[in-house]
Simulated scan of single mutants.
Amino acid sequence: MYILITNDDGYQSPGLAALRRALAPLGEVAVVAPDRNWSAAGHYRKLFDPLRAWEGSLIDGSPAMICDGTPADCVALAVMGLLPKKPDLVVSGINLGANLGSDLLYSGTVAAAMEGIIFGLPAIAVSQNNGHRSPQDFRAAEAAVTRIVQQVCQRQIPAGVLLNINIPDLPPEQVRGIQVARLGQRTYRDELVVRHDPRGRPYYWIGGAEPEDLHEEGTDVAAIATGYVSVTPVHMDLTSHKWMDEVRNWGLE
């Protein structure tokens, strides 16, 4: 396997080094990662600016290509010729913080994996709940991603589908197992914070408390809350198929 890894927390994230450590025994690993944090950037692509990439190293000293583009840019650049050959698999992570439910619409981690499936490659996004806690323990995430990638190599993922993986912030011996789960619901409690600069001009922050999760059985949100690793197959078809006929009945066609 020739595996491309990237993230949205930037090349110095300990989660990226942990991901490389987990995948190195499974094949040849190439790293193309952003030079800064792109959390919540979604699937932004820098179409109107040149992209630059250079050799560097991760926080553990292992080699990497560093790019001044977004996570999706890193994958596109790698696949279109920055790497000497096309990867067999794209893995994005390990993100410092969960990507559950509607987080996927914002997540740069998931966007990088989405960019992989746009290019026809199997892809995985990996996130760890409360990943900013110190000291960081990625052992459970490394074990889960190793097991899942081994299965992906054997069974393959259908074209156009990625696996979104979330890991509870627990030591390996406390993780209860793996659950295949659908996307759950998170309610964001964002607030607009207005401040003023020394000249009296307003500027704005978007703040607020942590999202409120609906712990509905069978969802990724509930799986993480009860100590399981969640695995959710995700595809790009956002169509509400059950509403197709209803909208046709409006007589618009």
Results as ranks from 00 to 15, higher is better:
G108R: 05
I206V: 11
Q179P: 05
P87F: 00
A140W: 12
I224E: 07
L83N: 10
L19G: 10
G10S: 02
G27I: 09
L77C: 07
N129E: 13
K242R: 14
L23V: 10
I124M: 03
A225T: 06
P84R: 11
R186H: 00
W205N: 07
K85C: 11
M236W: 01
Y188Q: 12
R155Q: 13
A225H: 03
D68W: 07
A33K: 14
D103V: 05
I94L: 06
D137A: 12
A209Q: 13
W54A: 06
N130E: 00
G108I: 09
A223V: 03
A76R: 15
A78H: 04
L51R: 04
A181T: 12
G116H: 02
L162V: 01
V29D: 11
E253K: 00
H235P: 00
G184I: 01
D237P: 00
V229M: 09
W54C: 14
E210G: 09
H43R: 05
A140I: 13
P122S: 14
D197Y: 15
A143W: 14
D169M: 07
S13P: 06
T232F: 12
G184S: 03
L26M: 03
I165M: 11
Q12W: 02
G131Q: 00
P211R: 00
V175D: 05
Y44M: 10
P84L: 03
D68F: 08
L170A: 04
Y11A: 01
R133Q: 07
T187H: 08
F48D: 14
L238C: 04
H215F: 11
P87N: 05
E115S: 13
